[in-house]
């Protein structure tokens, strides 16, 4: 596969978009409709997480973050998307082999469609968040125009996750235990992200981590635009985009270098 094939340059044609959407829908259906609870699972997971962290950090540790349930909620749905799109796709070249082993299908489409499927899940969760924050949260500030900033922030998250997904799944071709290594890295990152800490506590004790950890910036900015009627922290947003694009480029490079070996190695 040459470089031109690895880049998603041709992803924009209506035919390809149609195919991506078809693959994403089937992927989504496979994930949620195979079990008894169906789509309910997609919604149940963040709610369960939410209850646990709420009890620990608000009831037991008394952190006193205003609107803590919503604060957690948005952090968790962003985090879950990140984990599903990275940990969940490490073996993608193996599980989706049937898509590329009989035709010269562009492997990028497999990645993009899987992340699109995760985006559908995130969308449902996000709608739940909006309903919860705007109608059930006592001290909610209500919707504002700043909310639309969530779109570039999500684009940032998508690019970052796609890049890491490419990197991890291509390393997997050569080293299978990247799976375990990434599990450890993810739980490390989880505790180094301001998901359930009060932001000031996070910034005081982990100075620089709002820039060092790309997920921290995304979560901080998402809360600013969704809950605080503030525009995103621009320098943080720019830095995060730079980070995500650099990781995506590295991902393209690895796909180009190792991706063609996937058919015979996996």
């Amino acid at each position: 596969m040459d470089m031109a094939n690895a880049f998603p340059s041709g992803l924009i044609s209506p035919h390809k978009l149609e195919r991506l959407w078809l693959l994403a829908r089937i992927e989504f259906k496979l994930r949620y409709y195979e079990n008894k609870l169906g789509l309910f699972w997609a919604l149940l997971k963040p709610v369960m997480d939410l209850i646990i962290y709420y009890v620990v950090f608000q009831v037991i540790l008394r952190q006193n973050v205003p609107n803590f349930a919503s604060y957690l909620f948005i952090g968790l749905i962003i985090w879950n998307f990140f984990v599903e799109s990275t940990s969940g796709t490490i073996q993608i070249l193996s599980t989706k082999k049937y898509l590329y082993e009989y035709s010269n299908m562009n492997k990028m489409e497999i990645y993009v469609s899987t992340l699109m499927s995760n985006t559908i899940g995130l969308f449902f969760n996000f709608v739940m968040f909006l309903i919860f924050y705007n109608f059930f949260e006592n001290k909610s500030m209500g919707p504002s125009l700043e909310n639309f900033w969530i779109l570039p922030i999500f684009a940032n998250l998508f690019i970052l996750s796609l890049g890491l997904s490419l990197i991890l799944s291509n390393i997997y071709i050569l080293a299978k235990d990247i799976n375990q290594i990434w599990q450890v890295a993810v739980s490390f990152l989880f505790f180094l992200s301001p998901i359930f800490y009060k932001l000031s506590t996070f910034l005081d004790h982990l100075p620089g981590f709002d820039y060092g950890n790309p997920m921290a910036g995304i979560i901080i900015n998402a809360r600013r635009v969704m809950m605080q009627h503030l525009p995103p922290d621009m320098s943080l947003l720019e830095w995060n985009f730079f980070y995500a694009i650099a990781i995506l480029m590295l991902g393209f490079l690895l796909l180009d270098k190792f991706g063609s070996k996937a058919a015979e190695k996996l």
Partner: peptide, 9 residues
């Protein structure tokens, strides 16, 4: 059928 045919263009 849908996936394969779509992949075939």
């Amino acid at each position: 059928i849908y996936v394969s045919s779509s992949v075939l263009g």
